[in-house]
Amino acid sequence: MVIPEDRQLNIVVAVKLVPDTNADKRIDPQTRRLVRSAAETVLNPFDEYAIEAGLQLKEQLADGSSVTIVTMAPESGKEVVRKALAMGADRAVMLSDPAFAGSDVWATAYVLAAGIRRIGFDLVLTGTQSTDAITGELPGALAEYLGVPGLTYAREIHVAAGRVRVKRETDTGYQTLSAPLPALASITKSAAEPRFASLKGIMAAKKKEIAVLRLADLEIAQAVGGDGAKLEVTELTASPARAAGKTVTAADGNAGARTIVAFLKERNLL
């Protein structure tokens, strides 16, 4: 598929609803899943960078291109999704069905891909990871299921002449990559800081559409939810409590420093 140069883009930002990092968390010992309550659910902070990148692209193109938010989450998360609309996204689609519960990253990517195909897309944006599962695998899995190039860890993104170009961050420097649309890019935290939702945005978001798609609305050809998950959490244990530190008492600062240096050298830490 070749996207003509002058066509408006459907930018789809895939987001995740995660437990508020500031809230106390509890794991259900039976299911080994996090107990989620609607009041303490927030937009995955990493995804706000993808939303910001999508909004900036839309503003730069200024040709009627739109930003659609997609998430797989229970409907109770509607007000959380509305925050993305308050930031300026045009509409949102929630993929909500009890059958999706228990999905691992692969099953989630599969359902998201089905939803995104149904919405229609030219460019899919994601964050780099979620603050809860922290696998960082979703962008790759989603690109795979959508059958499009995945340009991961982008700190800058541009669209022109039917192609997407990203500046990519690596351990040692930067790469600039380009691919034809449709494509997927994951956006890092070194991209532009996410904007605050303005009062105007908050009031406008009340009138924006949040559509809900169920299992039956999507073309799903394989098991999803817990049944479709390839990964299983077999055990959860708390990390061992840290042992009490060692206190060094010395006659003066120099003597104390020498003792500490010797201690660190002994353990090859210096």
Binding site: E79, R82, K83, A86, F196, A197, L199, I202, M203, A205, K206
Partner: peptide
Amino acid sequence: SGDQQAIQDLCREFA
């Protein structure tokens, strides 16, 4: 309400 919550969140994060 949804927008009251959103305004509270905005001001909390901004502050």
